[in-house]
Every structure is written in structure tokens, then in C-alpha cells.
């Protein structure tokens, strides 16, 4: 990378890469949170949303940043101090770390360990710990309920998520992200001159659907936004956070959505693959598509109740994901 060799090169390259990726993701989140989310929701619900500050209301991002950062940071009595302070940081950075192994395309790929898939899920799961810390340390019953819900839903849905991802690993025969992307480049069928690549979403749409659902639950979006559940438990684990901590929590949530999108794109949608445009652009668009999907779900789908949600997880998703895994294993074993 950058023509530098050896340890120095690796370190400098790694730092520069991390800098680029982190900035790309933070900028994306800045666009997504204060601006795009409002605009998207508004178009789903017949409204206009922000349009006064700057072109298309884009400067609302700056206005919001100033507003949020200048607010008082209220620390309630009786919060469990180190845990309460650490939770927003844990949530945000666990999501950012996950991007280390994601191949963005156009050569932007920070690390490519042989166990890339395992690493990305492990990193993403750390966020659950942050949520539980926030819920438990806030000394607030609504936060506690939110934390409990977060634990329950993460256990119930992370297993199907990872088991479904495992079916992709079986298919690709590797845990390495770059290899998984490479396998998906191979042609599946050629039809009237158009070659359809071997994206796993096309090879196994059932697994893709399962993965998307479990992914929604994992990142806590509608209809599975139970850990927050406004109108039921106020704001769940976030209830007591304000100002900068609040920004960090939201940052973490949005980065987590994009990480979810990035994982789905890498495992199922061919990673950065796509015609004409450079790979990075394609990858970026795929992440945004997933973000759009979560916003659509948010506008149109009611939230499940906690017991129904867990039932669906343990009795439905788990069984289906294992069936999918077994079936994939058998098919791969027979064909290959």
C-alpha cells in the first residue's frame, strides 16, 4: 500500500486506511442521521422535512451538530459511573471496528484475516454489551427494561444470524472476506449474453431473507426496535443520555446499521461488484440500500411484542436457519 514496505509501511498504511474508512463512515452517518433519515421518513409519510437551512436543508447537519454538542450533559443521580460513561463509547467503536475487515472495493480493504467473517460478527456483537451497560448503569427502570430486552433479543437473533452466515461460508469454503467476494464474482448462468454473477442472494434467496430479518433484529430496527421502543419504555437504554453521549449512542446506532448493510452486501450481494461504476461506489450504494430498507420498515411495519418477538426468534428463525445450514451443507457436499 502506498509503495511503503515492511512494518513501517504496514503501520502507516493501516493508519491511513483506518483514517479514510472511519471518516467515510462518520461522514455517512452525519448525512444519514440528521438529514437523510428525515428526508426519507418524510417522503414515506407525505411531508417535506428539513428544507430551510442550506441547499435541500443539508446544513441542518451542522446546525444539529452545534445544537447537540452545546447541550448540557446531564448525569442523573446514582448512575454507575464508569459503566455509564463507557457504554456510548463501546457501542460506537464496536461498530466502527467491524469495518476493519470489510472490503470496500477499489482497493480499500484495511485487513483481510482468514477469519474475517468471525471477526466482523464478534465486533458487531460487542455493541450488545454496550447496550446492557447503558441499560443497567442508568439507574432507571425504563433503561433496565430496555437493557433486558436487548439481551433477550440479541441472544435470540444472533444465533440465526451467524448460522445463516455460516451457510455462506460453507458455500464459499472460506472465512476470508476477500475470498467470499471473489467466489461471488464467478458466473452463475449466462442468459442471452448477460452473465448473472454467483451472488449468494441469487443462489440462495431464502438465506438472504433470513439474514436480512435477523440483521434487522440484531441492529434493533423496526419491527424489532424493542430495546428502544418509544411509546412503551420511553427510549429504553438511551433514556438517561443527553448531549455528547446521546450523539455517541446515535452515532453507534447508525454506524451499526451501515455495518449491517456492509455485512449483507459482502456476504450476499457480491461486495463491491457491479458494472460501469467503480467498486467502492457500488459498495457504498449497497450499504445505503440497506439503510433505506430499514427506514422503509420503520415507516410501515408495526413493532412486535417482546414475547412474540422471542417466540419468532427461537421457534421460527432458529429452526429455519439450521434447516438452511443443513440443506446448504448437503447440497454443497453433493455437488462439489
Amino acid at each position: 500500500m502506498l509503495g511503503l514496505d515492511g512494518v513501517v509501511g504496514a503501520v502507516v498504511g493501516g493508519l491511513i486506511g483506518a483514517f479514510i474508512i472511519a471518516n467515510v463512515m462518520l461522514t455517512t452517518t452525519a448525512i444519514a442521521g440528521p438529514w437523510a433519515k428525515r428526508k426519507i421518513t418524510a417522503s414515506f409519510t407525505d411531508r417535506i422535512a428539513v428544507n430551510r437551512v442550506g441547499p435541500f436543508g443539508l446544513l441542518i447537519i451542522v446546525a444539529d451538530a452545534v445544537r447537540l454538542l452545546s447541550k448540557e450533559l446531564i448525569v442523573p443521580d446514582g448512575v454507575d459511573r464508569p459503566a455509564w460513561d463507557l457504554a456510548p463509547i463501546v457501542i460506537t467503536f464496536s461498530a466502527l471496528i467491524g469495518f476493519a475487515v470489510i472490503p470496500f472495493g477499489s482497493g480499500l480493504h484495511l485487513a483481510d484475516p482468514e477469519t474475517g467473517v468471525v471477526f466482523v460478527f464478534a465486533a458487531a456483537s460487542i455493541a450488545s454489551i454496550g447496550v446492557v451497560m447503558a441499560g443497567y448503569a442508568s439507574n432507571n427502570k425504563y433503561s433496565l427494561l430496555g437493557g433486558l430486552r436487548a439481551i433477550a433479543s440479541n441472544i435470540a437473533y444472533e444465533i440465526p444470524l451467524i448460522v445463516t452466515a455460516a451457510s455462506v461460508v460453507i458455500f464459499a469454503g472460506t472465512l476470508q472476506m476477500s475470498e467470499i467476494v471473489a467466489v461471488q464474482r464467478q458466473p452463475l448462468v449466462t442468459f442471452a449474453g448477460v452473465t448473472i454473477p454467483q451472488w449468494f442472494a441469487i443462489v440462495n434467496p431464502f438465506a438472504f431473507a433470513l439474514f436480512t430479518l435477523a440483521n434487522l433484529a440484531e441492529i434493533g430496527r423496526n419491527p424489532f426496535d424493542l430495546p428502544e421502543a418509544p411509546t412503551e419504555i420511553v427510549a429504553g437504554f438511551q433514556t438517561e443520555y443527553s448531549s455528547v453521549y446521546f450523539v455517541l449512542l446515535y452515532l453507534g446506532e447508525f454506524i451499526h446499521i451501515f455495518l449491517g448493510g456492509a455485512i449483507a452486501a459482502t456476504l450476499f450481494l457480491g461486495g463491491p461488484a457491479g458494472p460501469v461504476l467503480p467498486g467502492f461506489v457500488w459498495f457504498y450504494l449497497k450499504m445505503w440500500a440497506f439503510f433505506l430498507f430499514t427506514q422503509w420498515a420503520r415507516s410501515a411495519v408495526p413493532r412486535l411484542r417482546i414475547d412474540q418477538f422471542l417466540n419468532a426468534g427461537w421457534k421460527g428463525m432458529l429452526v429455519l436457519s439450521f434447516a438452511n445450514l443443513a440443506l446448504t451443507a448437503i447440497l454443497v457436499g453433493v455437488i462439489v
Binding site: T41, N222, E232, R298, S299, P302
Partner: peptide
């Protein structure tokens, strides 16, 4: 009511208000 069940200011609430 939809707001209470859905949990956000979602489409149905805005349609009803419209």
C-alpha cells in the same frame, strides 16, 4: 393508536393527520 403500536411517527399517523 397506530402510533402506540408502531412506535414511531410512522406513515399511518401522518396519513391520518393528513
Amino acid at each position: 393508536f397506530a402510533l402506540d403500536v408502531y412506535g414511531d411517527f410512522t406513515a399511518i399517523f401522518m396519513y391520518a393527520v393528513r
